[in-house]
Amino acid sequence: MKSKLFWPLMILVLILLINLFFDRSFFAIEVKNGYLTGSLVDILNRGAPLLLVAIGMTLVIATKGVDLGVGSVMAMAGAAGAMAVSGASEGGLVPLFTAIAFVIGISLLSGVWNGVLVSRIGVQPIVATLILMVAGRGIAQLITDGQIMTVYYEPYTFIGGGHLAMLPFSFFIVAAVLAIAAFMTRKTAVGLFIESVGTNPEASRLSGINSKNILLMVYIFSGLCAGIGGLILSSNVASADGNNAGLWYELDAILAVVIGGTSLNGGRFSLRGTVIGALIIQSLTTTIYSIGIAPEINLVVKAIVVLIVCLLQSAEFRKKVFGIFTIKRPEKKKEGVSLS
């Protein structure tokens, strides 16, 4: 299959195989205390916030935008959630629902903020979301009063640390959000509208698509995804840190989307690719820890993987490097160029 997902998938498999080389039991999944455990489950569990953020980011990038505010939204959502349950003790689920309401409220608000700036005022997405990226972290610190808030309320930790049907609960959240996103974009016309707005907003408007509302919706969805991701992150460690929660998530999410084959130029997008991209980033991190490379090198490895993936996706690069091998079949080479 000469699909766009070919190279990302190969890299994911390669990363996982490298693990097998160092740790024979890497693919083993055992049942411990009634839960499935193992490195693969661990990658899924730890990657849940990134997967969520990246799903939201895919739709934003498909409209030729970018949402830099997601990391700050995660911090704000985590802080708001932790604040809602900070005074709560055991028993009663009311604080939990208050926390969820807070999180959804603050993430919707952030999404609307970004969406209005981009769609109504017409600010360039990078700039519009940069505001929230800078100010949002300040607001998160304002909520937590600059300290790390610890949560002692049991039900709150279930969202990011609990299990359901032997699997981590966060897995089901991701699955649900992914299913909704996939259904909305592939089974209804919304996906087509998003791609159309990403390719040419003016032409889309003229052909009767409400470009502005599509843009607004996409940013709200991204904010919501980030908020839920922030809740999982904060719940997982039973605390909220306005300064460091969700730090660099926006960049990881953009990477996941780009690795997954969605172009930053907007238009065609691939949710499946994004999931693979996010898994690549998460398994890369897990791999670096598990095979005993110093965690400091994490960033260097990440940089190199990013470059390799981007270069492989660049038509010019493939033409220049692989072109040498395909000189005998010029028509094949042409196909490769037009594909991307």
């Binding site: 970018v66 990477l255 260097v300 990013v306 470059l307 010019e316």
Partner: peptide, 30 residues
């Protein structure tokens, strides 16, 4: 060069550069 010759997005290339430079710092000393 990467941005020009391979038509990569400046955003992504400099992002990789950012990770690389930060990582190299830690390679020198934590």
């Amino acid at each position: 060069c990467l941005i020009h010759y391979f038509h990569l997005q400046p955003f992504i290339v400099t992002l990789a550069g950012m990770f690389l430079a930060r990582g190299l710092c830690y390679l020198i000393s934590v």
